[in-house]
Design a protein around this nucleic acid. Structure first.
Length: 258
DNA sequence: TACCTATGTACAC
DNA sequence: TGTACCTAGGTAT
């Protein structure tokens, strides 16, 4: 919608007024994402860096932009359409050098063709930190969040408390390969569905259930409900500051509880 | 109208 | 580990 075109930038809410002025009237030359970070390049060595965080949203449309509603941090308007950004964790203008600093602190992104899971593995293999924490550490793996953490560990039968050094290369490779598939599918469909065809409510003869986040999942936010595979109650605990969910039967704990 | 929750991160201690 | 950031939508009062 904006690539190669001159765009208008404004901050109806006012909090990004100075930044918007740096971009206003410039041409969008490229756009890229690394993990949860969006990088939109403008002419003049200016890069818009956006991280949606936990609240942020983008609203977009074709044609003439409507009057802004709510707290619109940044509005971009081009010939073909408009985009409104609300509530981001980060919204700033960087130069290419600052972008490199940002990228250097991010780990392998399962959605990127240039990702090297070997780098992540070297970090994982030498730490006692558990895999449930490592999967949310964006300097190890960039992109997965709380839903993918819970779901990929369930799909691979890995207890979230397994320490990095005890995970083993094969299990790490299985987790990585699954993330690549799941996240690509998420991009394609715009939602997070992780339930295999043989476990869908239709296949199992259960009523359909879609989580509030909009996708079908095995354990995420299903605390106390029966596991879709074995029927045991799904457990929950806080790990790395976020609500974690797992099935204690399908994800055996290898000698430790909790 | 108040309160709670959420696909996240940084910083103080 | 706790808290601030900061927004919208849902539920309770």
């Amino acid at each position: 919608m904006f690539g190669g075109r001159r765009v208008g930038a404004s901050s109806p809410q006012g909090r990004f007024a100075a930044g918007a002025r740096l971009l206003d009237g410039r041409v969008v030359v490229d756009a890229d994402a690394h993990g949860k970070h969006l990088l939109v390049g403008f002419d003049g060595d200016r890069v818009l860096h956006v991280h949606l965080g936990i609240y942020g949203t983008y609203g977009m449309g074709a044609g003439v932009a409507p009057a802004p509603t709510g707290a619109v941090r940044l509005r971009l308007v081009g010939e073909a359409g408009w985009a409104d950004l609300r509530g981001p964790n980060v919204c700033e203008v960087l130069d290419r050098g600052e972008v490199k600093v940002l990228r250097d602190r991010l780990g392998a992104d399962p959605l990127r063709a240039d990702a090297d899971p070997e780098v992540a593995w070297r970090r994982i293999a030498r730490t006692r930190t558990c895999v449930g924490v490592l999967l949310l550490d964006q300097s190890v793996v960039a992109g997965p969040g709380n839903i993918y953490r819970a779901e990929v560990l369930f799909r691979q039968g890995v207890h979230p408390g397994v320490q990095g050094h005890a995970l083993g290369r094969r299990r790490w490779e299985a987790i990585w390969d699954d993330l690549v598939v799941l996240m690509a599918e998420g991009v394609r469909t715009g939602r997070i569905d992780t339930v295999r065809p043989e476990h869908t409510p239709e296949a199992m003869g259960r009523p359909p259930r879609v989580d509030d986040h909009g996708g079908e999942v095995y354990v995420y936010r299903r605390a106390g409900l029966p596991c879709l595979v074995c029927g045991h109650g799904v457990r929950t605990a806080v790990l790395a500051g976020r609500n974690l969910f797992w099935c204690p039967v399908c994800q055996p704990s290898e000698g430790h509880e909790g």
